[in-house]
Design a protein around this nucleic acid. Structure first.
Lengths: 152, 152
DNA sequence: CTATTTGCAAATGGTTTGCGTTAGC
DNA sequence: GCTAACGCAAACCATTTGCAAATAG
Protein backbone atom coordinates (compact mmCIF):
# COMPACT_ATOMS: atom_id res chain seq x y z
CA UNK A 1 0.00 0.00 0.00
CA UNK A 2 2.68 2.47 0.91
CA UNK A 3 4.84 1.56 -1.99
CA UNK A 4 1.75 1.51 -4.17
CA UNK A 5 0.77 5.04 -3.30
CA UNK A 6 4.38 6.11 -3.68
CA UNK A 7 4.32 4.85 -7.23
CA UNK A 8 1.02 6.55 -7.81
CA UNK A 9 2.37 9.92 -6.76
CA UNK A 10 5.40 9.52 -8.97
CA UNK A 11 3.38 8.55 -11.97
CA UNK A 12 0.77 11.27 -11.51
CA UNK A 13 3.46 13.87 -11.08
CA UNK A 14 5.38 12.74 -14.12
CA UNK A 15 2.25 12.77 -16.24
CA UNK A 16 1.16 16.17 -15.04
CA UNK A 17 4.60 17.65 -15.59
CA UNK A 18 4.92 16.10 -19.03
CA UNK A 19 1.60 17.66 -19.94
CA UNK A 20 3.18 21.07 -19.48
CA UNK A 21 6.43 20.07 -21.15
CA UNK A 22 8.21 19.83 -17.81
CA UNK A 23 10.66 17.23 -16.62
CA UNK A 24 10.46 15.22 -13.47
CA UNK A 25 13.33 16.06 -11.16
CA UNK A 26 14.35 15.01 -7.71
CA UNK A 27 13.61 18.47 -6.38
CA UNK A 28 10.17 18.62 -7.90
CA UNK A 29 9.31 15.22 -6.52
CA UNK A 30 10.52 16.09 -3.04
CA UNK A 31 8.78 19.43 -2.99
CA UNK A 32 5.56 17.93 -4.20
CA UNK A 33 5.72 15.14 -1.63
CA UNK A 34 6.39 17.62 1.13
CA UNK A 35 3.39 19.62 0.05
CA UNK A 36 1.19 16.58 -0.26
CA UNK A 37 2.12 15.16 3.12
CA UNK A 38 1.74 18.49 4.85
CA UNK A 39 -1.50 18.89 6.70
CA UNK A 40 -1.16 22.65 6.52
CA UNK A 41 -0.54 25.08 3.68
CA UNK A 42 3.18 25.68 3.60
CA UNK A 43 4.93 28.71 2.18
CA UNK A 44 8.08 28.42 0.10
CA UNK A 45 10.15 29.05 3.15
CA UNK A 46 8.30 26.38 5.09
CA UNK A 47 9.06 23.91 2.31
CA UNK A 48 12.65 25.01 2.09
CA UNK A 49 13.25 24.59 5.80
CA UNK A 50 11.57 21.23 5.84
CA UNK A 51 13.53 19.84 2.89
CA UNK A 52 16.99 21.31 3.35
CA UNK A 53 17.92 18.67 5.91
CA UNK A 54 17.40 15.88 3.41
CA UNK A 55 18.50 17.96 0.41
CA UNK A 56 21.28 20.23 1.57
CA UNK A 57 21.95 21.57 -1.91
CA UNK A 58 18.37 22.67 -2.43
CA UNK A 59 18.07 26.38 -3.00
CA UNK A 60 15.29 28.76 -2.17
CA UNK A 61 14.76 29.86 -5.74
CA UNK A 62 14.27 26.29 -6.84
CA UNK A 63 11.44 26.04 -4.36
CA UNK A 64 9.90 29.19 -5.78
CA UNK A 65 10.29 28.02 -9.35
CA UNK A 66 9.03 24.57 -8.53
CA UNK A 67 5.80 25.63 -6.89
CA UNK A 68 5.15 27.70 -9.98
CA UNK A 69 5.80 24.70 -12.18
CA UNK A 70 3.63 22.46 -10.05
CA UNK A 71 0.86 25.01 -10.14
CA UNK A 72 1.06 25.28 -13.91
CA UNK A 73 0.95 21.52 -14.10
CA UNK A 74 -2.24 21.53 -12.08
CA UNK A 75 -0.80 19.49 -9.24
CA UNK A 76 -1.08 22.15 -6.57
CA UNK A 77 -3.05 25.29 -5.95
CA UNK A 78 -1.89 28.65 -4.76
CA UNK A 79 -3.52 30.20 -1.73
CA UNK A 80 -3.21 33.92 -1.30
CA UNK A 81 -3.08 34.34 2.42
CA UNK A 82 -3.54 37.43 4.50
CA UNK A 83 0.06 38.01 5.49
CA UNK A 84 1.18 38.50 1.90
CA UNK A 85 3.05 35.22 1.80
CA UNK A 86 2.11 32.79 -0.90
CA UNK A 87 1.04 29.42 0.39
CA UNK A 88 0.35 26.25 -1.49
CA UNK A 89 -2.08 23.40 -1.22
CA UNK A 90 -1.76 19.96 -2.76
CA UNK A 91 -5.33 19.12 -1.84
CA UNK A 92 -7.17 19.69 -5.10
CA UNK A 93 -10.53 18.38 -3.96
CA UNK A 94 -13.22 20.97 -3.60
CA UNK A 95 -12.83 22.55 -0.21
CA UNK A 96 -12.90 25.90 1.52
CA UNK A 97 -10.74 27.78 3.98
CA UNK A 98 -10.92 29.31 7.38
CA UNK A 99 -8.30 32.02 7.83
CA UNK A 100 -7.33 33.38 11.22
CA UNK A 101 -7.03 37.15 11.08
CA UNK A 102 -4.51 37.21 13.87
CA UNK A 103 -2.05 34.40 13.21
CA UNK A 104 -2.92 34.04 9.50
CA UNK A 105 -3.23 30.28 9.83
CA UNK A 106 -5.34 28.50 7.24
CA UNK A 107 -7.59 25.49 7.85
CA UNK A 108 -9.48 23.37 5.35
CA UNK A 109 -13.24 23.09 5.47
CA UNK A 110 -15.32 20.56 3.61
CA UNK A 111 -18.80 21.81 2.85
CA UNK A 112 -20.70 19.57 0.50
CA UNK A 113 -23.96 21.42 0.91
CA UNK A 114 -22.36 24.48 -0.61
CA UNK A 115 -20.85 22.56 -3.47
CA UNK A 116 -24.36 21.50 -4.47
CA UNK A 117 -25.79 24.97 -4.11
CA UNK A 118 -26.77 26.67 -7.41
CA UNK A 119 -24.40 29.45 -8.39
CA UNK A 120 -25.54 32.99 -9.18
CA UNK A 121 -26.79 33.49 -12.72
CA UNK A 122 -25.05 36.74 -13.51
CA UNK A 123 -21.60 35.14 -13.40
CA UNK A 124 -21.61 34.63 -17.15
CA UNK A 125 -21.75 38.40 -17.56
CA UNK A 126 -18.28 38.60 -16.02
CA UNK A 127 -16.50 35.68 -17.61
CA UNK A 128 -15.91 31.97 -17.40
CA UNK A 129 -15.82 30.64 -13.85
CA UNK A 130 -13.33 27.90 -13.09
CA UNK A 131 -13.26 27.55 -9.32
CA UNK A 132 -15.37 28.79 -6.49
CA UNK A 133 -14.29 28.77 -2.88
CA UNK A 134 -15.63 30.18 0.33
CA UNK A 135 -13.24 32.05 2.57
CA UNK A 136 -14.18 32.27 6.20
CA UNK A 137 -12.27 34.80 8.24
CA UNK A 138 -12.18 35.16 11.97
CA UNK A 139 -10.11 34.28 15.00
CA UNK A 140 -8.93 30.74 15.51
CA UNK A 141 -9.36 28.92 18.80
CA UNK A 142 -5.77 29.33 19.88
CA UNK A 143 -5.64 33.07 19.19
CA UNK A 144 -9.08 33.53 20.71
CA UNK A 145 -8.02 31.91 23.94
CA UNK A 146 -5.04 34.23 24.26
CA UNK A 147 -7.32 37.15 25.01
CA UNK A 148 -8.56 39.78 22.65
CA UNK A 149 -6.14 42.61 23.37
CA UNK A 150 -2.91 40.81 23.94
CA UNK A 151 -1.21 41.55 20.65
CA UNK A 152 -2.49 44.92 19.77
CA UNK B 1 -28.08 65.60 -2.13
CA UNK B 2 -24.51 65.78 -3.32
CA UNK B 3 -23.48 68.12 -0.61
CA UNK B 4 -25.48 66.06 1.83
CA UNK B 5 -23.66 62.85 1.02
CA UNK B 6 -20.38 64.74 1.06
CA UNK B 7 -21.07 65.77 4.59
CA UNK B 8 -22.10 62.25 5.44
CA UNK B 9 -18.81 60.86 4.24
CA UNK B 10 -16.87 63.41 6.23
CA UNK B 11 -18.78 62.75 9.38
CA UNK B 12 -18.67 58.99 9.08
CA UNK B 13 -14.95 59.11 8.42
CA UNK B 14 -14.27 61.41 11.32
CA UNK B 15 -16.29 59.24 13.65
CA UNK B 16 -14.67 56.03 12.50
CA UNK B 17 -11.19 57.50 12.81
CA UNK B 18 -11.90 58.95 16.22
CA UNK B 19 -13.03 55.52 17.35
CA UNK B 20 -9.54 54.28 16.75
CA UNK B 21 -7.89 57.36 18.20
CA UNK B 22 -6.98 58.66 14.75
CA UNK B 23 -7.20 62.19 13.44
CA UNK B 24 -8.96 63.25 10.30
CA UNK B 25 -6.51 64.63 7.80
CA UNK B 26 -6.76 65.93 4.28
CA UNK B 27 -4.85 62.94 2.99
CA UNK B 28 -7.06 60.44 4.76
CA UNK B 29 -10.17 62.12 3.46
CA UNK B 30 -8.90 62.25 -0.11
CA UNK B 31 -7.72 58.67 -0.06
CA UNK B 32 -10.98 57.45 1.38
CA UNK B 33 -13.00 59.40 -1.17
CA UNK B 34 -10.90 58.03 -4.00
CA UNK B 35 -11.51 54.54 -2.72
CA UNK B 36 -15.19 55.09 -2.23
CA UNK B 37 -15.75 56.60 -5.65
CA UNK B 38 -13.74 53.94 -7.39
CA UNK B 39 -15.80 51.27 -9.00
CA UNK B 40 -12.87 48.88 -8.89
CA UNK B 41 -10.53 47.75 -6.14
CA UNK B 42 -7.50 50.01 -6.32
CA UNK B 43 -4.04 49.22 -5.03
CA UNK B 44 -1.93 51.77 -3.19
CA UNK B 45 -0.21 52.67 -6.39
CA UNK B 46 -3.53 53.13 -8.17
CA UNK B 47 -4.61 55.51 -5.43
CA UNK B 48 -1.32 57.32 -5.47
CA UNK B 49 -1.41 57.87 -9.21
CA UNK B 50 -4.99 59.03 -9.10
CA UNK B 51 -4.43 61.52 -6.29
CA UNK B 52 -1.01 62.93 -7.02
CA UNK B 53 -2.40 65.34 -9.60
CA UNK B 54 -4.62 67.02 -7.04
CA UNK B 55 -2.20 66.48 -4.14
CA UNK B 56 1.32 66.83 -5.52
CA UNK B 57 2.91 66.54 -2.11
CA UNK B 58 1.24 63.22 -1.35
CA UNK B 59 3.73 60.46 -0.80
CA UNK B 60 3.45 56.78 -1.45
CA UNK B 61 4.06 55.75 2.12
CA UNK B 62 1.25 57.98 3.31
CA UNK B 63 -1.05 56.03 1.05
CA UNK B 64 0.22 52.80 2.55
CA UNK B 65 -0.15 54.06 6.09
CA UNK B 66 -3.55 55.52 5.38
CA UNK B 67 -5.12 52.40 3.96
CA UNK B 68 -3.91 50.61 7.08
CA UNK B 69 -5.49 53.27 9.25
CA UNK B 70 -8.74 53.19 7.31
CA UNK B 71 -8.80 49.44 7.55
CA UNK B 72 -8.26 49.55 11.30
CA UNK B 73 -11.04 52.10 11.55
CA UNK B 74 -13.35 49.72 9.77
CA UNK B 75 -13.97 52.04 6.83
CA UNK B 76 -12.42 49.88 4.17
CA UNK B 77 -11.57 46.24 3.65
CA UNK B 78 -8.41 44.67 2.34
CA UNK B 79 -8.61 42.30 -0.58
CA UNK B 80 -5.76 39.91 -1.10
CA UNK B 81 -5.57 39.57 -4.83
CA UNK B 82 -3.78 37.04 -6.92
CA UNK B 83 -0.95 39.20 -8.19
CA UNK B 84 0.47 39.77 -4.73
CA UNK B 85 -0.63 43.38 -4.63
CA UNK B 86 -2.91 44.48 -1.84
CA UNK B 87 -6.14 46.01 -3.03
CA UNK B 88 -8.78 47.80 -1.05
CA UNK B 89 -12.52 48.02 -1.12
CA UNK B 90 -14.69 50.73 0.43
CA UNK B 91 -17.82 48.68 -0.21
CA UNK B 92 -18.48 47.09 3.16
CA UNK B 93 -21.80 45.53 2.27
CA UNK B 94 -21.85 41.79 2.06
CA UNK B 95 -20.64 40.84 -1.37
CA UNK B 96 -18.39 38.41 -3.16
CA UNK B 97 -15.68 38.57 -5.78
CA UNK B 98 -14.90 37.28 -9.20
CA UNK B 99 -11.16 37.28 -9.85
CA UNK B 100 -9.72 36.94 -13.33
CA UNK B 101 -6.80 34.55 -13.28
CA UNK B 102 -5.15 36.25 -16.23
CA UNK B 103 -5.42 39.98 -15.65
CA UNK B 104 -6.10 39.70 -11.88
CA UNK B 105 -9.01 42.08 -12.12
CA UNK B 106 -11.63 41.86 -9.38
CA UNK B 107 -15.38 42.32 -9.79
CA UNK B 108 -18.05 42.51 -7.13
CA UNK B 109 -20.86 39.98 -7.02
CA UNK B 110 -24.01 40.29 -4.97
CA UNK B 111 -25.47 36.95 -4.04
CA UNK B 112 -28.25 37.18 -1.53
CA UNK B 113 -29.21 33.55 -1.81
CA UNK B 114 -25.80 32.61 -0.46
CA UNK B 115 -25.98 35.10 2.36
CA UNK B 116 -29.11 33.32 3.60
CA UNK B 117 -27.61 29.87 3.24
CA UNK B 118 -26.87 28.07 6.52
CA UNK B 119 -23.18 27.87 7.32
CA UNK B 120 -21.39 24.62 8.05
CA UNK B 121 -21.70 23.44 11.64
CA UNK B 122 -18.10 22.47 12.27
CA UNK B 123 -16.87 26.05 12.01
CA UNK B 124 -17.00 26.49 15.76
CA UNK B 125 -14.38 23.77 16.08
CA UNK B 126 -11.92 26.11 14.34
CA UNK B 127 -12.69 29.46 15.91
CA UNK B 128 -14.98 32.45 15.74
CA UNK B 129 -16.06 33.35 12.25
CA UNK B 130 -16.36 37.03 11.41
CA UNK B 131 -16.78 37.24 7.67
CA UNK B 132 -17.53 34.79 4.92
CA UNK B 133 -17.01 35.51 1.25
CA UNK B 134 -17.11 33.48 -1.90
CA UNK B 135 -14.24 33.84 -4.34
CA UNK B 136 -14.94 32.91 -7.90
CA UNK B 137 -11.94 32.48 -10.10
CA UNK B 138 -11.83 32.19 -13.82
CA UNK B 139 -11.20 34.22 -16.96
CA UNK B 140 -12.96 37.52 -17.46
CA UNK B 141 -14.75 38.36 -20.67
CA UNK B 142 -12.04 40.63 -21.99
CA UNK B 143 -9.22 38.15 -21.38
CA UNK B 144 -11.34 35.30 -22.70
CA UNK B 145 -11.95 37.10 -25.97
CA UNK B 146 -8.25 37.66 -26.50
CA UNK B 147 -7.73 33.98 -27.20
CA UNK B 148 -6.52 31.32 -24.85
CA UNK B 149 -2.89 31.07 -25.82
CA UNK B 150 -1.96 34.62 -26.57
CA UNK B 151 -0.04 35.40 -23.41
CA UNK B 152 1.49 32.05 -22.62
C1' DC C 1 0.65 73.44 22.92
C1' DT C 2 1.32 68.48 22.42
C1' DA C 3 0.90 64.29 20.14
C1' DT C 4 -0.09 62.59 15.80
C1' DT C 5 0.77 62.54 10.95
C1' DT C 6 3.24 63.56 6.97
C1' DG C 7 7.13 63.36 3.58
C1' DC C 8 11.56 61.94 2.64
C1' DA C 9 14.73 58.39 2.08
C1' DA C 10 16.64 54.28 3.37
C1' DA C 11 15.76 49.53 4.82
C1' DT C 12 13.25 45.29 4.56
C1' DG C 13 11.78 40.89 2.89
C1' DG C 14 9.46 37.91 -0.13
C1' DT C 15 9.99 36.77 -4.84
C1' DT C 16 12.23 36.82 -9.44
C1' DT C 17 15.94 36.64 -12.79
C1' DG C 18 20.61 36.07 -15.37
C1' DC C 19 24.08 32.98 -15.91
C1' DG C 20 27.29 29.12 -15.73
C1' DT C 21 26.91 24.27 -14.33
C1' DT C 22 24.31 19.92 -13.77
C1' DA C 23 21.13 16.46 -15.02
C1' DG C 24 16.81 14.53 -17.36
C1' DC C 25 15.21 12.50 -21.49
C1' DG D 1 23.91 15.35 -26.87
C1' DC D 2 20.61 18.76 -26.50
C1' DT D 3 17.65 21.24 -23.73
C1' DA D 4 15.53 22.06 -19.46
C1' DA D 5 16.45 22.67 -14.57
C1' DC D 6 19.48 23.74 -10.75
C1' DG D 7 22.25 26.68 -7.57
C1' DC D 8 24.31 30.91 -6.76
C1' DA D 9 24.06 35.70 -6.26
C1' DA D 10 22.31 39.85 -7.51
C1' DA D 11 18.18 42.38 -8.81
C1' DC D 12 13.46 43.56 -8.13
C1' DC D 13 9.50 45.64 -6.22
C1' DA D 14 5.79 46.19 -3.04
C1' DT D 15 5.69 47.50 1.53
C1' DT D 16 7.57 49.20 6.00
C1' DT D 17 10.21 52.11 9.11
C1' DG D 18 13.13 56.04 11.42
C1' DC D 19 13.27 60.72 11.77
C1' DA D 20 12.62 65.82 11.34
C1' DA D 21 9.08 69.09 9.94
C1' DA D 22 4.12 70.13 9.68
C1' DT D 23 -0.51 69.93 11.34
C1' DA D 24 -4.92 68.44 13.82
C1' DG D 25 -7.46 68.96 18.09
Amino acid sequence: MEQGSEEGVLKALRTALAGGGFRLTQQRLSIYKALESSGSHPSCEDLFRKLRTSMPSLSMDTVYRTVGTLEQSGMIRKIVSMDGVQRYDANLSNHHHFVCERCFGVWDIDWEAFDLFPLPEDLSALGTMRTCQVEFKGICLKCGSLGSGSWG
